[in-house]
């Protein structure tokens, strides 16, 4: 019983991290129809900034996180303006190559400034304590991760369903050309969506540093994982990404607990079968 509970808690916490990092990727890939392999770089950048601020300048965790998100959003806006805007027009293959190129340059730069070792993040002491929920105790960190994941989900739901920007965004995901011809400023929608996605990736990268340690090779090492979440969930679907993240988080964790050794094989076979049966993902729209 306690094993099932640990799998559930760890799996859900892991899934929440995956969700926060990849939901932005799902939106941008659904919106701009591009294959973006560079998304993990934003999580890495967020983690690197927090590492710099907390361990080298002794800034507290929360302000450091805010600064990191702000910095990453700024970089994302710049990158979108300079590079990604051109990449939208490339062929599938060109997009793969250009974004892999960006990943390589990012890895090399992080290594140049910070080295290739794992970059620890100075979390508040509270994170390592455990909380008594009555029926069992939980590491506080897991609780923070799960709550922030739910907050992100709620916030995105409000943004998509209750604001004018959300309407623009949904319209642009459904039909880019029609949305543009109705007077929606689609380049602006792209820019904002891209920046929001990058900011969320930074939050996920920092909060998830305990599970997915921050280091120079981060964007390449976990790229496949984020892309799997997006393609299983279906491009452009927030609820799809959420269920895919939680499902994959639990599946991966259960595989590691119950089938040590062949867990990874099981995981990837499951993914391949699912994608072969439903190439557009669980909640993807047929193209």
């Amino acid at each position: 019983m306690s094993l099932i509970l640990s799998i559930a808690v760890d799996g859900i916490a892991y899934g929440m991290i995956l969700f926060m990092i990849s939901v932005g990727l799902s939106i941008t890939m659904g919106l701009m129809r591009i294959i973006n392999l560079a998304h993990g770089a934003f999580a890495l950048l967020g983690g690197a900034v927090v590492h710099l601020l907390t361990t080298r300048m002794e800034v507290a965790f929360i302000p450091a996180l805010l600064v990191a998100v702000f910095a990453v959003v700024l970089i994302a806006v710049l990158l979108e303006r300079v590079l990604f805007r051109q990449i939208y027009g490339f062929t599938e293959l060109g997009q793969v190559l250009a974004t892999i190129g960006i990943v390589f340059i990012m890895i090399a730069s992080i290594n140049f400034f910070l080295g290739s070792t794992i970059l620890p993040i100075g979390v508040p002491a509270m994170f390592t304590t455990s909380v008594d929920l009555g029926f069992r105790t939980l590491p506080f960190h897991r609780l923070v991760v799960i709550v922030s994941g739910l907050l992100v989900l709620g916030g995105l739901w409000l943004l998509m369903e209750r604001t004018r920007f959300g309407i623009y965004l949904r319209a642009a995901v459904d039909n880019r050309a029609a949305a543009a011809s109705l007077g929606i400023n689609t380049p602006y929608v792209y820019l904002v969506a891209f920046a929001i996605g990058a900011g969320l990736a930074a939050v996920g990268g920092v909060l998830g540093a305990e599970l997915l340690p921050i280091e120079a090779y981060y964007p390449l090492r976990y790229m496949v994982l984020f892309l799997i979440v997006v393609s299983v969930g279906g491009l452009g679907s927030i609820s799809g990404s959420f269920f895919a993240s939680i499902g994959l988080g639990i599946l991966d964790t259960a595989g590691r607990y119950l089938l040590p050794g062949i867990g990874t094989i099981f995981f990837f076979v499951a993914i391949a079968v699912l994608l072969a049966l439903r190439p557009n993902g669980l909640m993807g729209k047929a193209q």
Partner: peptide, 28 residues
């Protein structure tokens, strides 16, 4: 037989997954 039925992102992902599975099999 499986991956050529798909295209785009799904094809890329399945081809990566096949390699990952083989690598795990080889290591186990």
């Amino acid at each position: 037989l499986v991956l050529l039925r798909t295209h785009g992102v799904a094809l890329l992902m399945i081809s990566i997954a096949v390699t990952m599975v083989l690598q795990e099999v080889a290591s186990q």
